[in-house]
């Protein structure tokens, strides 16, 4: 192995991509897994070979994993708390008077 390739690490030169596949028309793209590739074009081809060998999809997205900003599950301030005390956002919160239709 050449000295240069010794220095080449997968993570530096072949970063991680997250793969999303639309299984059929009418469905949203769904996360199916990840892979390594040096650029977007190869990531797309690798994703085709890795995740759609059995016609699992009609469309693929690949996104550099480093571009994803995620909420942290162990954040001390509960990130999702604001949603917990707003039951009035759900239709079941409201009393519908007897006999009212189409509501």
């Amino acid at each position: 192995m050449s000295e240069r390739s010794e220095r080449l690490s997968v993570s530096d030169h072949s970063p991680l991509w997250e793969v999303f596949v639309r299984a059929r028309r009418g469905l949203a793209h769904t996360h199916v897994g990840s892979l390594h590739a040096p650029d977007a074009e190869l990531a797309l081809r690798n994703a085709r070979d890795l995740y759609t060998r059995r016609q699992e999809g009609v469309s693929i997205w690949v996104v550099p994993a480093s571009s994803i900003t995620a909420s942290s599950p162990d954040e001390k301030d509960a990130f999702f708390d604001p949603a917990a005390d707003k039951v009035y956002r759900h239709p079941t919160f409201y009393d519908v008077p007897e006999g009212v239709a189409h509501l």
Partner: peptide, 19 residues
Amino acid sequence: HTEGAWVREAAAAYAAKQA
């Protein structure tokens, strides 16, 4: 793994050039 090194290097070099 060793014999495939040039493929990984070439792909990385191409990606760097495009970027």
